[in-house]
């Protein structure tokens, strides 16, 4: 199996809300003190790919669309033992809508070679759109399967276990396919060894520009085909600024907290 895994770099979604700043002009969340991390569901996809390779052989190529900072995501993937890495360098990647992102990834995948399985994470921890995989599949003219928990190679191709609204379902597909991976008890991302982290920096990394993908002409650019535009980004009106309930002693804190909980519970009746 030749496997390609798309990896997205995002603002650490676990940082406290109070640490978020918004730049109203540029309509984006300002990084501030937040770390940049690999989207966790993308790491679940990479872990799934690593396991598939260990049982069925093949190679793993990792691909990102982002700014120079995104190299970190690819180096980490190489440290986890991905075979090849490629970055589509684009300073505006962060502002791409899902259709733009899918078009860039599709063009890069066509350039990089042919793959049996293309994996994405189920959604990103920042925008949470969860469409890139489906749109990418359409761009490549391949079937798409969302929310895959497990897959294995069998005589007919791939045996897929997919999450549904009521449980899971199992079926077989013939590669090539695009799949989105959800987290399961089996795909917790491995931690790379220090030695492999060091080695990852000596591995080659392919850098592609939008021009390399023939996407630089404005009429061909993904922006021309994108379908929505951010009007505004804001802190929710029902502003979530957590009040940590205080008091002089435990009893006071509990009473104050109990009152608030009981009040909210009452409104549901």
């Amino acid at each position: 199996m030749n496997i390609l895994v798309c990896l997205k770099q995002i603002l650490d979604p676990d940082i406290p809300a109070r640490d978020f700043r918004i730049d109203p002009e540029r309509r984006e969340a300002v990084r501030g003190s937040a770390d940049l991390v690999t989207n966790i569901f993308c790491e679940n996809a990479l872990e799934t790919a690593l396991q598939l390779r260990s049982t069925s052989g093949g190679t793993i190529t990792v691909l990102s669309h982002g700014s120079e900072d995104t190299e970190d995501v690819l180096r980490k993937a190489l440290a986890m033992k991905a075979d090849e890495a490629a970055l589509v360098l684009d300073q505006d990647a962060e502002r791409a809508d899902p259709l733009q992102a899918a078009r860039v990834l599709a063009a890069a995948i066509r350039k990089l070679g042919s793959f049996d399985v293309i994996m994405v994470g189920r959604e990103s921890g920042d925008w949470g759109i969860g469409q890139t995989g489906g749109l990418l599949a359409e761009e490549l003219g391949l079937p798409f399967i969302a929310l895959v928990e497990q897959l294995e190679v069998d005589e007919r191709g791939l045996r897929i276990q997919r999450q549904t609204d009521t449980g899971t379902e199992i079926f077989e597909v013939t590669p090539p396919v695009v799949i989105s991976i959800t987290n399961s008890e089996n795909n917790l991302p491995r931690i790379p060894k220090t030695r492999d982290v060091m080695k990852s920096y000596r591995k080659p990394l392919t850098t592609l520009s939008l021009a390399d993908l023939s996407l630089e002409d404005p009429s061909l650019s993904p922006a021309a085909g994108s379908y929505y535009r951010l009007a505004e980004i804001s802190i929710p009106e029902k502003e979530i600024r957590c009040e940590l309930v205080e008091g002089d002693n435990l009893e006071q804190r509990i009473d104050a907290f109990a009152r608030r909980v009981a009040d909210i519970a009452d409104t549901t009746r």
Binding site: A29, G128, L230, A231, P236, I240
Partner: peptide, 25 residues
Amino acid sequence: MVGDEVIWKRPILGGKLQSRVRVKG
């Protein structure tokens, strides 16, 4: 509705922020 346009609201960053988007075209 803002003017004659529909603006869609959706949460981002796990609901810590909200975005409002307009559809192009």
